[in-house]
């Protein structure tokens, strides 16, 4: 039974991810007095891309072909480690938060290589910027996990969530509130949102993610876009489930599971709303201001840890 539930979780993350993108797009459209896409449009887009033929650059090598699979596979493997609507995950046992970070790094590694593979200036630009930003974001993410792990005395994602859920809410708020801020900033950075990257632009001055996938088309593009959406949902799920871990059942029972599913949808909607709100109200930062932004995440995570040290663990 738990197996079915775990598999369902994975399917849920993969299936729900485009909807989150839709939500933010729609929110942005409404704020600009546009109608915005229909709900199913995001899914139709993906399906269409999966069916379309591909044009591959003549310069590209096998790295270009492998990258979408590795990127998607790495993201899915990371998704399988995350508890979503119950306290377990299909592959939560296979590693810890460090593995989660490095699985995402694996996908990124191949994606940036593929961007260099076609020999265009756009690809190089996107690749260089992505690595620049991620090499600052990655230590901050690790530090956030360490800071939470210091409180929970475990680094496994499922373990962290269970410990936090068993704790009383006011202690969770105190101990991890700053880490929450850090992860929020990182969620924005990792999913390529304003103010770090503009997902709606095709202007070379501002592109990061879009510049990397510029040469992709058809099926590969679908895999990359979908993978990117899943990655975005992963970070939102981290925000929702690590920092608001209540109401998630640990055994299989129909009613709590359905309730938890609704709760999850609600939490993700709120998180997506926050991301969308920031996207509407802020301008994209200059590339060399982004390190300042990421430094804030790093410092928040460090403060969260230092605060726990000052008060004493478990006080």
């Amino acid at each position: 039974m738990t197996l079915i539930l775990s598999v369902f979780q994975a399917v849920l993350i993969a299936g729900f991810a485009p909807a989150v993108s839709w939500f933010i797009k729609k929110m942005k459209a409404v704020s600009q007095n546009r109608v915005g896409p229909r709900f199913f449009q995001v899914y139709f887009d993906l399906i269409k891309l999966f069916r379309k033929g591909m044009v591959i650059s003549g310069t590209a090598s096998w790295v270009f072909h492998a990258a979408p699979y590795v990127f998607f596979g790495g993201t899915i493997a990371a998704a399988l480690m995350l508890p979503v609507i119950w306290k377990g995950a299909l592959c939560g046992f296979m590693g810890d938060a460090i593995l989660f970070v490095y699985l995402l790094a694996l996908g990124r590694f191949f994606l940036v290589l593929a961007a260099l593979d076609t020999g265009t200036a756009f690809g190089g630009m996107g690749s260089s910027r992505e690595m620049f930003l991620s090499s600052l974001a990655e230590p901050a993410l690790l530090l956030s996990f360490f800071s939470i792990g210091f409180h929970t005395k475990t680094l496994s994602l499922t373990g962290m969530m269970s410990v936090l859920a068993a704790d009383s809410p006011h202690r969770v708020i105190f101990f991890v509130s700053l880490a929450f801020g850090a992860v929020l900033i990182l969620a924005i950075a990792e999913s390529g949102r304003i103010p770090v990257d503009n997902p709606a632009t095709h202007l070379e001055l501002t592109m990061v993610h879009e510049a990397m996938v510029l040469e992709y088309s058809g099926r590969y593009l679908a895999l990359l876009e979908w993978g990117h959406q899943i990655k975005q949902l992963l970070f939102l799920t981290l925000l929702a489930n690590l920092f608001f871990p209540w109401g998630i059942p640990d055994t299989f029972n129909a009613v709590p599971i359905v309730l938890s599913l609704l709760l999850y949808a609600g939490k993700i909607a709120v998180a997506a709303w926050v991301i969308g709100w920031i996207e509407i109200h802020f301008a994209k930062l200059r590339l060399f201001r982004v390190p300042d932004f990421l430094a804030v995440a790093f410092v928040l995570a460090l403060l969260s840890f230092l605060g726990q040290l000052m008060v004493g663990r478990g006080a």
Binding site: A77, F93, I98, T154, L155, S156
Partner: peptide
């Protein structure tokens, strides 16, 4: 006791999901 990891499993999971 904070964490554990199994690379054969990681490898297997990635291969299966791919």
């Amino acid at each position: 006791g904070w964490s554990q990891i199994s690379l054969p499993w990681v490898f297997g999971v990635m291969a299966v999901s791919l």
